[in-house]
Design a protein around this nucleic acid. Structure first.
Length: 485
RNA sequence: CGGGGCGUAGCGCAGCCUGGUAGCGCAUCUGCUUUGGGAGCAGAGGGUCGGGUGUUCGAAUCACCCCGCCCCGACCA
């Protein structure tokens, strides 16, 4: 793990929320409309919209506690930047508060995962965080799981637990309602908080004790059908990560406490990743933007994390072997009847015979992804969000709220961006130019629009790409057009 | 769970060894000046020194116990 320098110049937090500019008090504070569909290629009916994850916002009225200084406890860059950008705040070891900016990103990631799961045919449900121990005794895992499972008692001294995963729970749902192969295939998923009492939580949300996870569970009549369901999820994962601007390499994996004999983990490549990974150069030729994939080909390509990689036994010739660092963000399993048998989840097949259902489970670390995204997208100045998960798309810098021309133009643009439903964060604080630019770069919004007296006089504003650093001067109309307003 | 370290103002730290009742930078508040890359000057506010017990005339400082957090290792979405 790359460690950042821990030198600490004696400086600190630039404040949020300086007084709001009196001159800026006209106009609506928050737009009610302006909901953008995060899935560019999907059109949802209004009934399918989830609560808005972003609204135009002015910084003087927002809650963005940015830190000028890197807190001592953060070791890796994503943790440092999440703290500095006011995204999260630790409440206890491995347990975090999600502040507005971080929560925005978390919901963006969540929305993409939801969308891709449903496109793949999985059906959303919601299972509880607290589960009765008896259910886990049925599968034998109450005894097997070990100290990672947080065991608690209710007031009646009944054994309960804060779920580290939900195989038993979903199997119980299944067995109570499904009797026939005709009701298959079925894939139920949810996005819910989990708790694993890690001995040593670290790296911020990358390895917390409480974490948000998407877990899907497939039910099929036999192994062949279950493996098709597995492949279906395999492809959905590639699409999901691609949509977040990440390259995820599927690797053969151990099944651990989930069990089973077929498993892949998905590692995204980031220079500061937790483990070294080795993979066939052929992965670099894969078009992850594709709609369809040849799963058999992808499964056959070599890829392994360092603990499973043996240079001597590696089937890939050295000149075709690539290496990098990876972060595990997803893990899929086929485990057959491991839970169905002890828990008596069975269906009647076409032949009239009753047989245990074949299952698989498919996890994505949603909260971990927020950290992983930063590991894969940052520079020395701060975060560089991919557009699909950015907390706001545009950062509008009202450079001099006291300059009538510049301020007027900034507010006009803000109003138009708001009306067009473009997620915009307006920096209307009474701060110096440097502080405003530094904040924008730290929080990493994809597009920065600077409106200052210099340009405003000539009817020009500045548009800057956070990622490339490229800057263009253009008029307000051209700007709005560029941003799709 | 083994080994190590740290808890002093919102953040980052000094003071502790050698006990005498708390300090620096940033942030915050007020005023003036400044204003395209984390401003300057002047003034102000803010701390049961993680908690408890003990030693002492006196404890941030010494001793013991507890709690919390961080790092290395074993373990993991």
């Amino acid at each position: 793990m790359a460690r950042e320098c821990r030198c600490k110049p004696a400086v600190d937090a630039s404040g949020n929320r300086s007084r709001s500019c009196a001159a800026a008090s006209s106009g609506p504070v928050v737009g009610l409309g302006g909901r953008r569909c995060t899935a560019a290629q999907t059109v949802r009916s209004p009934g399918q919209l989830r609560p808005p994850v972003e609204m135009p916002m002015r910084l003087s009225r927002y809650f963005l506690p940015v830190l000028k200084e890197t807190p001592a406890e953060a070791q890796i860059v994503s943790h440092q930047l999440m703290l500095r950008a006011g995204m999260i705040q630790q409440l206890s070891a491995g347990i975090y508060n999600w502040l507005p900016l971080g929560y925005n990103v978390l919901r963006k990631v969540e929305a993409i995962v939801h969308d891709e799961m449903q496109r793949a045919g999985a059906i959303p449900i919601l299972m509880p965080t607290i589960q009765p121990a008896d259910l886990w005794r049925e599968s034998g895992r109450y005894e097997d799981y070990g100290k990672e499972m947080l065991r608690i008692k209710d007031r009646h001294e009944r054994d309960m637990l804060y779920g580290p995963t939900n195989e038993e729970n979903v199997t119980d749902i299944f067995r109570r309602h499904v009797q026939s192969f005709k009701q298959l295939p079925l894939n139920l998923y949810h996005i819910q908080w989990k708790f694993r009492d890690e001995v040593r939580p670290r790296f911020g949300v990358m390895r917390g004790r409480e974490f948000l996870m998407k877990d899907a569970y497939s039910f099929d009549v036999d192994q062949a059908a279950a493996e098709a369901a597995y492949d279906n999820m395999f492809v959905a994962y590639l699409k999901t990560f691609k949509r977040m601007g990440l390259t995820a390499i599927p690797m053969r994996a151990e099944t651990g406490p989930i069990g089973g004999n077929l498993s892949h983990e998905f590692q995204i490549l980031a220079s500061t990743g937790e483990s070294a990974v080795y993979f066939d150069a052929a992965f670099e030729d894969v078009d992850f933007s594709a709609e369809t994939f040849d799963v058999e080909v992808l499964k056959s390509l070599y890829a392994a994390a360092d603990d499973k990689h043996d240079a001597a036994a590696c089937p890939v010739p050295p000149e075709r072997l690539k290496s990098g660092r990876g972060i595990e963000v997803g893990h899929i399993f086929y485990f057959g009847t491991k839970y169905a048998e002890p828990m008596d989840a069975a269906v009647i097949g076409p032949d009239g015979e009753t047989r245990p259902v074949h299952m698989g489970s498919y996890g994505i670390g949603v909260s971990r992804l927020v950290g992983a995204l930063i590991e894969a997208n940052h520079d020395e100045k701060g975060i560089v969000w991919p557009e699909s998960v950015a907390p706001f798309r545009v950062g509008l810098v009202d450079l001099r709220p006291d300059d009538a021309t510049a301020h007027g133009l900034a507010m006009e643009l803000y109003g138009k961006l708001e009306k067009a439903g473009i997620e915009t964060l307006l920096d209307d604080r009474e701060e110096r130019a440097g502080a405003k630019f530094a904040t924008m770069e730290l929080i990493g919004l994809p597009w920065q629009v600077t409106v200052g007296p210099r340009g405003a006089k000539a009817g020009k504003v500045e548009l800057k790409s956070r990622r490339s650093g490229e800057t263009v001067e253009l008029g307000p109309d051209a700007l709005l057009q560029r941003l799709g307003a």
